[in-house]
Amino acid sequence: MLLTVDRINKSYSSFPNPPVQVLHDVSFSLAPGQALGLVGESGSGKSTIAKCLMALAAPESGSILYDGMDVSKARGAELLRFRREVQMVFQDPYGSLNPRMSVEELIGEGLLVHKLEPTAARRRERVAEIMRTVGLNPDDMVRFPRSFSGGQRQRIAIARALVIGPRILVCDEPVAALDVSVQAQVINLLRDMQRKLGLAIVFIAHDLAVVRHLCDSIVVLHKGRVVEAGPRADIFERPREAYTQALLAAVPVPDPEIGRARRERRHVLT
């Protein structure tokens, strides 16, 4: 396994109230090149998992192992290797790009920080190359993020993450802030990149419809616990847990007959 999350717990202190535990013994694992979907409603602990995965927060107990290293204890050169090999795309494409850096600086930052390309000219070539790969015009590299639409910004964010050649890409609801028409483009881009680069993806989403086309296996979260986990087919065709069934029933379908029947069944848990 490339990444193993083993029974992690995490709580947030909210003094003077008692601390709120947001993750309860969450475990899952990710194989090289696999796309894993983490699905759950607001407050299910998805973003906290992302923070722990990215070593931005440390779980109180349990461990996250990446390629043999304990992520939350990694320091120095080891942490730097982790940063190069595990990258992230954030939810809000308007807040996740520094407004004072040009696209070239934004995308090239990883190459600079990890000293992958020593010269500015070579960095520019690599930036242009990855911009073409994600469907951006390299001529736009001198522009600033505010000149781009939400979907284009998310492409910039993906290029920024992928240019240093990571092995895992963690996507924290990367399409939740985008128009439906643009959502599909970004998901297709991620799938293409996954196939082309052999990338492993952890895709966090709040509804099952979004992960359906991308993820081989799915972990369903509810109130900080893993409710159900398994291959895509099992989750979609034979959901065992009532919560998973309720989530599935919430996926809109284009057929009014089926839709009506589903709405009947939706009162199970919500």
Binding site: F90, G95, S96, N98, P99, V113, A157, I164
Partner: peptide, 22 residues
């Protein structure tokens, strides 16, 4: 607290670069 600062940390920038550039 901004997301782009978290983004820079995830990318592995040094503390100096984080403060002066972001």
């Amino acid at each position: 607290e901004s997301q782009f600062v978290a983004g820079a940390q995830v990318l592995g920038v040094s503390r100096w670069r984080l403060m002066t550039k972001h």
